[in-house]
Design a binder for these strands. Structure first.
Lengths: 122, 122
DNA sequence: CCATCATATTCCGATATCGGCATGTGTCAA
DNA sequence: TTGACACATGCCGATATCGGAATATGATGG
């Protein structure tokens, strides 16, 4: 008799721990958006976005864990600010597609340039 | 007595239905990545990424639903191709942060241009 | 030291999500 | 028409995730 039978199921890996998933939640994006204006206290975010305080704290925690925001205590408040550099992975991933994205436009551009050069030669 | 008591819980909205969440899954990103090379059949993706066939089909379904890929039947196979334009929302959202991101570099750039123009004037 | 304000954390139920497995559907070839 | 191939779908269990409510922590002012 084996010590343990085969389970047949697979453990899901935690997903909240990377930038892509952190940003996948609409509320978290809203929080990031509101932080573009600058450093804000939790209470300010709660008011601006009409979310519950625990909700905001939890989302800020997720954002902190992936480094998208940083915290600075000021008196009894905590000011959160954006760390936009951490969007790097997203940006880099997306960059691969922008080339594909623009390929048609690029080809069109090349074609137009070709026409133009021919015109100049004649 | 009320017809129904208050539940106290809140229904979660489906998340897989927007581009951000579609792209949040690592496997789905891999699938998209492998499609940059061009149109591929499901079986090809299965081989290239060493995933199970149903897994790939399901992920392709999610990607289809948000328009990130499109399907074309060819014989008994189905060829999927990228629809990079659908990454627009992601790109636009990110664009807001690249400005913040590059602010320092931009200021540096402005400073250099200023120096250069002064040099040309003299 | 105590009351209060600001925020974080914990507990909970409902639901979404993922992967494996089995099966359905559709197309081709003999 | 039948069988094989390519893919899609349905069902399942385990787990992740979200929001609400209550509570814990921590700083401040009197």
């Amino acid at each position: 008799m084996p010590i343990s039978e085969y389970d047949g199921t697979v453990a899901r890996s935690s997903t909240t721990s990377d930038v892509f998933n952190a940003v996948a939640e609409a509320r978290r994006r809203e929080i990031l958006d509101t932080l573009i204006a600058g450093e804000k206290a939790v209470g300010t975010i709660v008011n601006d976005l009409s979310l519950s305080q625990p909700q905001v704290s939890k989302h800020l925690r997720v954002l902190s864990e992936v480094g998208l925001v940083r915290c600075r205590p000021e008196g009894r408040r905590r000011l959160y600010r954006l760390e936009p550099a951490r969007l790097g992975p997203l940006h880099e991933w997306l960059a691969k597609y922008e080339q594909t994205w623009n390929e048609r436009l690029d080809r069109m551009d090349d074609y137009l340039k070709e026409l133009q050069e021919q015109g100049e030669q004649q």
